[in-house]
Design a protein around this nucleic acid. Structure first.
Length: 219
DNA sequence: ACATTAAGTGATT
DNA sequence: AATCACTTAATGT
């Protein structure tokens, strides 16, 4: 017999034992609520209060910035073993979220109430490091994303988008439509269709309706 | 069989 | 690279 708490402890241990000391993991198990959020659901919206911070145990969250005119731009993805670093500052200052987080593939996460994260910052070295590292990593991702926008052509961006997806999902077969890619890259479906056709002809991908297999990519 | 949604294409800006 | 307008193909009911 496994109690839910034991299972949760195991999962947290699998993802975070390298990062957090035992004592902190115990506390996380004690105060965190475990939850599963399905594909396509909204994790956090712009303007909502941050009451909890998620530690992702499995799945992917897409972080989006919304422009005033309603345009959206994808900033980065949260994966297993990571968290939304930006949300820490929001939590500590009681500010509202400036980003939107949509679940890309069903996530399992532990939600930590705000009141603990500040206290742990003072008391646990591993927690401090985790937060700083996490912030640093997000910054690097943002820079990468800006580089992409500024310097890469649409075909390069498309291929990068696809290979990133492959890395994240650990699967060379992607279930995605041309329209969805276009939305994420802020372009039109027609453009994506033409680029994909080209990539297909170059034997870099194999694509059929609703499905793309990435044939060539390097880690 | 029909309707709906995804994908392909030429022409134009 | 974007948009339009239209065609063709795949899929759901």
């Amino acid at each position: 017999m496994h109690s839910p708490e034991l299972l949760l402890r195991q999962k947290i241990h699998d993802c975070y034992s390298e990062i957090f000391e035992k004592e902190l993991i115990d506390k996380i198990v004690k105060v965190g609520h475990f939850d599963t959020i399905k594909d396509g659901e909204l994790l956090i919206d712009i303007g909502s209060d941050m009451t909890h911070i998620p530690l992702i145990l499995d799945g992917v969250v897409k972080i989006i910035r919304k422009e005033k005119n309603g345009e959206e731009i994808v900033l980065y993805f949260l994966e297993r073993g990571s968290t939304c670093a930006i949300s820490f500052v929001n939590c500590i200052n009681n500010k509202k979220s400036i980003f939107k987080g949509v679940v890309e593939s069903t996530i399992e996460a532990v939600f930590l109430p705000v009141e603990y994260i500040d206290e742990w910052l003072a008391n646990y070295k591993s927690w401090r490091h985790f937060i700083i590292d996490s912030y640093h990593f997000r910054l690097l991702e943002m820079v990468e994303s800006i580089d992409g926008l500024a310097f890469m052509k649409m075909d390069e961006r498309t291929l990068k988008f696809l290979t990133d997806k492959v890395k994240i999902s650990n699967n060379t077969d992607l279930n995605i439509t041309h329209q969805e890619i276009a939305d994420d890259l802020n372009t039109s479906r027609v453009v994506i269709t033409r680029i994909l056709k080209q990539l297909h002809d170059e034997n870099k991908i194999y694509s059929t309706r609703n499905k793309i297999r990435v044939l060539e990519y390097f880690e």
